[in-house]
Amino acid sequence: MAETSLHIAGRHYTVRCRDGEEAHLAHLADLIERKARLAQQNTPGLTEVRTLLFAALFMADELNELEREAVGRQQQLALDNEDESATRAIEALAARIEKLSDRLAAPAPDA
């Protein structure tokens, strides 16, 4: 198990992680650090805990927005698939109608 040091909101944290996950953890810590700096800039004088709280809220808001966008895209894809199915059904019906029309237009066989 690896150990890495992270810098978030003016403090250093030593955390353990799986071997090879250090860079990923550092990236995540950087994301949190940016949000913490944003919170401190927007509301000077925040305590460490409130800084991290606001950083978490900023990140949760972004995640929530991304989830809503993903749901919207999934719904649009479902509608697109329904449209494709309807188009195929209409095309199949049109082909059947043309065949029936051709049969009706054909001369009757001699009896």
Results as ranks from 00 to 15, higher is better:
residue 2 A to D: 05
residue 3 E to R: 07
residue 6 L to H: 13
residue 7 H to C: 02
residue 7 H to V: 13
residue 7 H to A: 15
residue 8 I to G: 09
residue 9 A to K: 05
residue 9 A to V: 00
residue 10 G to K: 10
residue 14 T to E: 09
residue 14 T to C: 13
residue 15 V to K: 14
residue 15 V to N: 08
residue 16 R to Y: 03
residue 16 R to S: 12
residue 16 R to H: 07
residue 17 C to T: 08
residue 19 D to F: 10
residue 20 G to K: 08
residue 20 G to Q: 11
residue 22 E to T: 08
residue 23 A to N: 06
residue 23 A to S: 10
residue 25 L to R: 08
residue 28 L to Y: 05
residue 29 A to T: 09
residue 30 D to Q: 11
residue 30 D to K: 04
residue 31 L to Y: 03
residue 33 E to Q: 11
residue 34 R to K: 15
residue 35 K to H: 14
residue 35 K to R: 12
residue 36 A to D: 02
residue 36 A to P: 00
residue 38 L to P: 03
residue 38 L to K: 09
residue 41 Q to L: 14
residue 41 Q to F: 00
residue 42 N to P: 02
residue 42 N to A: 13
residue 43 T to K: 06
residue 44 P to Q: 07
residue 44 P to S: 04
residue 45 G to I: 01
residue 45 G to M: 02
residue 46 L to H: 04
residue 47 T to N: 09
residue 48 E to F: 04
residue 48 E to L: 12
residue 48 E to S: 07
residue 48 E to K: 08
residue 49 V to S: 15
residue 50 R to E: 09
residue 51 T to H: 01
residue 53 L to K: 07
residue 54 F to A: 13
residue 57 L to K: 11
residue 57 L to H: 11
residue 59 M to W: 01
residue 59 M to A: 15
residue 59 M to H: 14
residue 60 A to V: 06
residue 60 A to E: 14
residue 61 D to H: 11
residue 62 E to C: 11
residue 63 L to W: 10
residue 65 E to H: 10
residue 66 L to I: 01
residue 67 E to V: 02
residue 68 R to T: 11
residue 69 E to P: 00
residue 72 G to K: 13
residue 72 G to F: 01
residue 75 Q to K: 13
residue 76 Q to S: 12
residue 78 A to W: 02
residue 79 L to T: 05
residue 80 D to F: 03
residue 80 D to G: 00
residue 82 E to N: 01
residue 83 D to P: 00
residue 85 S to Y: 01
residue 85 S to G: 08
residue 86 A to E: 09
residue 88 R to K: 05
residue 95 A to V: 02
residue 96 R to E: 07
residue 97 I to W: 03
residue 98 E to I: 01
residue 98 E to W: 06
residue 99 K to C: 12
residue 99 K to P: 01
residue 101 S to F: 13
residue 101 S to T: 13
residue 101 S to E: 12
residue 101 S to D: 04
residue 103 R to P: 00
residue 104 L to D: 04
residue 106 A to H: 08
residue 106 A to T: 04
residue 107 P to Q: 13
residue 107 P to T: 06
residue 107 P to A: 14
residue 108 A to W: 13
residue 108 A to K: 13
residue 109 P to S: 15
residue 109 P to I: 02
residue 110 D to Y: 02
residue 111 A to N: 08
